[in-house]
Design a protein around this nucleic acid. Structure first.
Length: 445
RNA sequence: UCCGCAGUAGCUCAAUGGUAGAGCAUCCGGCUGUUAACCGGAGGGUUGUAGGUUCGAGUCCUACCUGCGGAGCCA
């Protein structure tokens, strides 16, 4: 009878099938792939929680059901009823002996076939690509990373206090921002960081974090860049650069442990070498910038790096890769030349030419996943920095208030979710770590 | 923005300057245990665009468009 299976309750999910062996269940899903052999069909059904092979014998179902399933196209939506059986021949170990089925919508010509496809084609069909096993695994890891981030910070007493997405000025004055034409007499921009607002909320709540999308209008075109990405930024009042390094270590360790605990299956599907992740535990190596420069220069002398790195610059991608490859754990590089860092960074009292900033480089060449440090607490110093960087003073008046009314040493960092997920999954490109990547030249779907 | 590479069937790719082809997908047929199933058949093309060289261009030349990889910048 039409509609009877579609509205059937309770719906059983494929991930729970092992608890229903011997029972008759109803699964609602989509046709992942199908093989036929005359009077027997092997449709593979996915429902978002997993994939299960069904067995349809022509002799066991009505002629209507057989007819409906016999030539059903990939990704057709359907509901099946059948008995759960353990069978070693089935991928996944369980299968459904189908007794009844109902096609919700018969699809034809699904573009993503079980064969290879190019990147451009897959990205053009991202809305469908996310149905495939590999993308599913990556996005589940992302989900777990986000949960781990929130749980860790919540347990550490951080208050979620999100920063605005529409902002009146650049945080750091250097990067290119997305302009929004809406507010009268004033340009607005999409945020590049919640940093400055975090400093306000940290002074209100002590320990805070914001977690949301971030936008960079740079013409970056590499495997580590998105124009829209997600960043989590904790900030602590009465804290120093050392507190930031200590928190970063425990933070990353907690995330890795959670993913290893909950996403073994997904990491296995992605062929991730989990032994490399098992090693992630405090303490992480801490490298003074001077020492990092020495290592890079040695690397150049040994022929491992093309260009000789000179003291004073910021690391390029090959430099970060080389540094991270010298260690098995994330490496924390601290105390950069102030000239290459943001205006709000505090200075090293012993060497004022250095900023109390720290970058955490992920292992295996995944680059910078965390950037942070101690913020300048002095009103006079910040006023001078704003002048030197040619920033619009009016836009920063509220920020300067934070130094007028109870200024304290404070520090924090930001972590890019996509780079973190790419590292944990061991995948080439960050574009696969977000459901709908936004990149230079890619706005659709 | 700069450097490098690539655009041929729905997809992935072939084709010495000389008749545009294969696998998958689609449609039809066969097969009661398939594992990216297999076997047989059919349909499917303005070779990214515009110009040029040539008896003849998918192939050589020029410009443009689109995408990919990387750099700079950054998380």
């Amino acid at each position: 009878m039409k509609g009877s299976l579609l509205s059937f309750k309770p719906q059983v999910y494929i991930k729970d099938l092992s608890r229903h062996v011997g029972e008759e269940v109803v699964i609602k899903g989509w046709l992942y792939n199908s093989r036929s052999s005359g009077k027997i069909l092997f449709p593979q059904l996915r429902d978002g929680t997993g994939i299960v092979q069904c067995v349809v014998l022509k002799s066991a179902v009505s002629p209507e059901v057989w007819e409906a399933l016999d030539h059903l196209g990939q990704e057709s939506s359907l509901v099946v009823r059948g008995k759960v059986r353990e069978d070693a021949r089935a991928p996944g170990g369980y299968e459904i002996e189908v007794t009844d089925a109902e096609v919700v919508q018969a699809a034809t010509g699904y573009p993503i076939t079980p064969k290879e496809h190019g990147v451009e084609f897959l990205l053009d069909h991202r809305h469908l690509w996310i149905r495939s096993r590999r993308q599913h695994a990556i996005l589940k890891v992302r989900h777990t990373v986000v949960r781990a981030v929130r749980d860790f910070l919540d347990q550490e007493g951080f208050i979620l206090c999100d920063a605005p997405i529409l902002t009146p000025a650049a945080c750091e004055g250097t990067t290119t921002l997305f302009e929004v034409d809406y507010f009268e007499d004033e340009k607005a921009y999409l945020t590049q960081s919640g940093q400055l607002y975090n400093e306000a909320t940290a002074a209100a709540f002590g320990r805070v974090y914001c977690f949301g999308p971030t936008f960079r209008a740079e013409k970056s075109k590499t495997r580590r860049h998105l124009t829209e990405f997600w960043m989590v930024e904790p900030e602590m009042a009465y804290a120093t650069i050392d507190d930031v390094m200590e928190l970063s270590e425990r933070f990353l360790t907690a995330i890795v442990a959670r993913v290893l605990d909950e996403r073994r299956e997904e990491l296995k599907l992605l062929e991730r070498d989990t032994a490399k992740l098992e090693r992630i535990a405090p303490p992480f190596p801490r490298l003074h910038y001077d020492e990092a420069v020495r290592i890079l220069q040695e690397g150049h002398e040994r022929g491992a790096l093309e260009d000789r790195f000179e003291w004073g610059g910021d690391f390029g991608a090959p430099d970060e890769t080389y540094l991270s490859q010298q260690f098995e754990k994330p490496v924390m590089v601290h105390r950069f030349p102030a000239a290459v860092k943001a205006f709000y960074m505090a200075r090293d009292p012993e060497r004022p030419e250095l900023a109390l900033g720290v970058d955490v480089l992920a292992p295996e060449g995944y680059g910078e996943i965390i950037g942070g440090g101690e913020r300048a607490a002095s009103l006079e110093f910040l006023e001078e920095q704003i002048r030197e960087h040619n920033l619009p003073r009016e836009a920063f008046e509220w920020y300067l208030d934070l130094r007028r009314y109870g200024s304290v040493p404070h520090a924090g960092f930001g972590m890019g979710i996509e780079r973190c997920v790419a590292w944990l999954c061991g995948i080439e490109h960050v574009r696969e770590t977000i459901p709908f990547p936004r990149m230079l030249y890619r706005l659709r779907p």
